[in-house]
Design a binder for these strands. Structure first.
Length: 270
DNA sequence: TCTGGGGTCCTAGGACCC
DNA sequence: TCTGGGGTCCTAGGACCC
């Protein structure tokens, strides 16, 4: 990442080992495809440096937007380097399975298949209303199918929720086990909130039973909370009020959302 | 997919207010 | 007292991603 920063790139980390680099500032004076090709030496240099410094291979996709860069990097997986020029993007996309498009999971894939659409090319050619198949994602899916994507890089780490959950080795309704679990989760979440100087106005518990049935119950409060004890007690309250531990649990989870600046800790009630 | 954990976003119904 | 609409918040569940 430090190396990438030296290139003057704007960076959006996606996970521990994946990131988008925007280099349009570095190659801005060129026609789109020319700029892409000009970034090839830098991409090769990045791969080489990662390998010599860490002994790891890296895969890079080069394209004019996030969607295409991601698909390009997926194209040739270990140790790949794929460039998708603007002029080739529609053809590049055509043979890909619909599942390759980010946002198309098992459910949307099934809906599309039932309409006879299994490749991105078929989505490109589809004259019907994709909303009927993919809901509000339909219009975006259509644009993605043609390689159009204007999502900007998201930098900064605005976080919207914090959660912790645990799947038990054996389903349990032992109150002591569950309380200890919840207490630990509350402590973890509290530490995260404090580290980020955030408070949470919504607390949610999640339970899953042996048959995989999963329920959530949440509660919003006036004052943003961040103390482990407050989170723990609200979690207990929700479990009890909703009688969620009516049979053994496979999973117990605690989550907070509606995050914002905490009030003066002195005023924190409950 | 006999199924782990931490996230985001969307939908839909109900409460409540104007 | 009943009806209608819009806006916002809360809640629950689900699809999806890494």
């Amino acid at each position: 990442m430090a190396l990438a920063a030296q290139t003057g790139a704007v960076i959006e980390p996606m996970s521990i080992d994946e990131a988008y680099l925007e280099l349009s500032a570095r190659y801005r004076d060129n026609e789109a495809d020319a700029a892409l090709f000009e970034s090839l030496p830098l991409a090769r240099h990045l791969k080489q440096t990662i390998f010599s410094e860490r002994g790891l291979t890296a895969t890079i996709g080069i394209a004019a937007n996030k969607l295409l860069a991601k698909l390009a990097s997926d194209f040739q997986k270990p140790n790949g380097l794929t460039l998708v020029p603007e002029r080739d993007k529609v053809a590049f996309l055509r043979p890909l399975p619909v599942r390759a498009i980010p946002g198309v999971g098992p459910v949307t894939e099934r809906a599309l298949r039932q309409a006879g659409l299994t490749t991105v090319g078929q989505v490109q050619d589809y004259p019907g209303d994709l909303r009927a198949l993919a809901g509000s994602f339909g219009p975006k899916l259509k644009r993605f199918a043609f390689g159009e994507d204007d999502r900007p890089l998201e930098i900064g780490d605005v976080i919207k929720s914090v959660s912790s959950e645990e799947t038990f080795a054996r389903d349990t309704d032992d109150r002591r086990v569950l309380r200890a679990c919840l207490r630990e989760q509350a402590a973890e979440i509290s530490a995260e909130l404090k580290a980020r100087q955030l408070g949470a106005r919504t607390v949610q518990v999640k339970v899953r039973y042996g048959d995989f049935k999963t329920l959530t119950r949440q509660l919003s409060v006036e004052e943003p909370l961040f103390e482990a004890n407050d989170l723990y007690r609200l979690g207990c309250f929700l479990l009890g009020r909703e009688k969620l531990v009516c049979r053994p649990l496979r999973l117990l989870g605690l989550a907070v959302s509606s995050l914002g600046e905490p009030q003066d800790p002195q005023l924190s009630l409950l």
